[in-house]
Amino acid sequence: MISIKNLRKEYGTVTAVDGISFEVKRGEVFALLGPNGAGKTTTIKAILGLIQYEGDIFIDGMNARENEKRIKKMIGYLPEKVAFYDNLTALQTLQFYAELKGIHDADLPALLKEVNLERDANRKVGGFSKGMVQRLGLAQSLLGTPELLILDEPTTGLDALGAFEVRTKIRELSEQGNTILLSSHILSEVQELSHRVAILNKGSIVAIDTVENLSKKLDVQPKLRIELEHVSDEMVQQVSALDGVRDVTVEGNVIEAICPPNAKLSIIKTLEEAGGTVVDFKTVEPSLEEIFIKVVKDHV
């Protein structure tokens, strides 16, 4: 769906994007993950032809430079800082953008309902809260059911509830089979929503893969988390001595350790033999936070 080849953008002396390449497949949610200033927004702006750039971008095999209008017709875009016209109502706003996209049969009230703005349809956008503006932004990006959705930090600046609503909507769209390019600096969000992820740092891709594969490749293994009635030094020593077990940590009555899957049982056994009573245990998947810290550290 999207194919980016050696994309490069300099603002004066700042290299915002430093020759990155990646592909987004049809039907997947692809995330650009990285801290502020990593080059996420710049990459997105290039895809939409909002900035000049070096390298090539193809959408459905069409060169983005030469087919700007056709490509923009296929895309729904939610900018990082979405801004509308204060003097227009929510409905008038959507009417304007629908016309701009050449859509004359859109059911705008239904679209407003989808983002829970049906009761604010005739209110002026100037009086909207940040969350309402963002939801209206999401609504305009959905006009004409675009083949490709590009959402630049869709939950940034929203309160917990607003962010939850937007994430729920994105998951819904993903389940309907939409292709989504998402940018975020929130790791848990990317983990929750996306199939594949490119980790961006200082304009370069430092890792690109599925969330699971990335964990494997980086050797960030699942953690075993065991809650006991009480923890003794002896237990910790014996567990640490087991084959393949490492990074054993203790916090209160909880022992955490990284281990290969086949070592799980022997850890539990060892603990019981050393006089421990296991209350509960579970495997914790590594968070992207850990992956991210590791990747960036390795790369720098």
Partner: peptide, 8 residues
């Protein structure tokens, strides 16, 4: 920016 992200 938003306007120019449309087919215009």
């Amino acid at each position: 920016m938003l306007m120019l992200s449309y087919p215009v």
